[in-house]
Design a protein around this nucleic acid. Sequence first.
DNA 1: ACCTGAACACCGTTCAAGT
DNA 2: ACCTGAACACCGTTCAAGT
Lengths: 237, 237
Amino acid sequence: MTGKQISSVWTRDARPARTPGRTREEIARATLELLDAEGLDGLSIRKLGAKLGAGATSIYWYVGNKDELLELAYDEIWGEITLPIPESLGWRDTVSAFAYSMRHVMLRHPWVGSLIGRLPALGPNAMAMSDRLRRTFRLAGFDGMDIDYANATLTAYVFGTVIPEIAWSTSMGGEELDMDAMRGTFEHVARDFPDLLERLVEINEKVTVSETDRLRAVSFDFGLVAVLDGLEARLRS
Amino acid sequence: MTGKQISSVWTRDARPARTPGRTREEIARATLELLDAEGLDGLSIRKLGAKLGAGATSIYWYVGNKDELLELAYDEIWGEITLPIPESLGWRDTVSAFAYSMRHVMLRHPWVGSLIGRLPALGPNAMAMSDRLRRTFRLAGFDGMDIDYANATLTAYVFGTVIPEIAWSTSMGGEELDMDAMRGTFEHVARDFPDLLERLVEINEKVTVSETDRLRAVSFDFGLVAVLDGLEARLRS
DNA sequence: ACCTGAACACCGTTCAAGT
DNA sequence: ACCTGAACACCGTTCAAGT
């Protein structure tokens, strides 16, 4: 009587690649392209089959279900993040670069925002990144479980900042926002909180789209510095 | 020629409640119950209709589409978070209590993990919480935009920690995990990273489920203290 | 004002059957 | 070993029609 297993694509090796068949990489890339083009709702097994020039259900030969397919695409994301060599840059600059790169990659593939809360990150690219980040924090002077805590703190900050950013911009659905309508929305939803309303309107008013981006970048940096300062304080105690 | 609008339930008032009709609150509560009982995939407009003793599509009278329905349930979550009075507790203890409460509420309603990256938080409960948090940070001594940056940093940390926690535990799908299978999974996915593997196995080995919970709580606290220390450093500079 | 049922255009997944 | 098509049990959403 064995208990439950973790359900993940990565618990099994890919089926051995033979000439006529597809590979996991092909499928992962095609899935990623479909997601980038049409979003999470736009991805269906049938469309993916068509894109690969195959019958609708042939994907099930390679993958147990749709979530496993998404795991494949999710791990591609981790592969796009860059991390400098910690030995030459020092830990603060290294993890800062990681944080910026991760934010950038997430914004380029906004559908990840909906996956992070649903799928475990057990793919090879995620594992490799984990390992390198741990090495960086060890080099910084963290020890034992603190390595993992520091790692978790940094990643949490990035995820937690970017995920709502994504929700916000997809709910806008594009660039050409009607500023007046937006102001109206704020005045409606924050009508009982004059203080908050003032700030919302203020932010809304002075900004073109590119200024919003800059403001978000400033906010991201503010928090990142705070997180790194906090970690550094731990290091000294 | 007006531009795009934000699409959210909260941009419109609820239709005026008359005797035979339902209210947004009823619908929000029923949706929340269905989500708690069957998860995000278990919620369908038809099931919700049945639960309310109504025709399948009557919900569309109150709500534009399924995402708007989810916004209703999402805002209920914000209403469950408790925040002490900042004036009597001091800012650090106040925002700590907020962070713990938010984590707790999210773990009780794991489906929020998939919504935060998809829906804006514009509901009355979210707004009220925003306002109170801003007040707390102002009391702490933050000023101007720094109030919002500090607020964003804290919330980001909580979201970013809990969201992957949720993904992790739902991919386990329950309590009775086969430890050996889990070890096997780790040995498989982290086979190229001996260091990381060692840590994964170590964590897996020494822990019952309740110990995992304790470990997560320790990790959460480590990061939270770091974030608060980092914010406090900003305050002094 | 509020609700219904039928209908449309989709889904994910299973499975027997093909090569 | 790999792929197919048909079939099943669902979806979200629209809309004319009812009261």
